[in-house]
Amino acid sequence: MVYDSDERRCRIVARRAGPLLVEGPVEVTLEDGTTVTSDRFRVALCTCRRSRTYPWCDTSHRKSERPVPPHDVTRSDS
């Protein structure tokens, strides 16, 4: 069988600090056998497993930080 493998190949962009970016539309089968779909031009798949909308990324992989206390002036740049 002859086909254009470049055309058929699914393109994914991987970054360690973020989601897998897959060209859409996609259909994802989850471990319980259910399938979910997204028609978006690109789809961000969660890799940190913290997403509340798994398998889609909801930016839960981001670092979180306690706010700087008001008396701490070292962060104030004004």
Binding site: L21, R40, A44, W56, C57
Partner: peptide
């Protein structure tokens, strides 16, 4: 969902 993609 959309803006998690758009951000990237």
């Amino acid at each position: 969902e959309a803006d998690a993609v758009h951000e990237q």
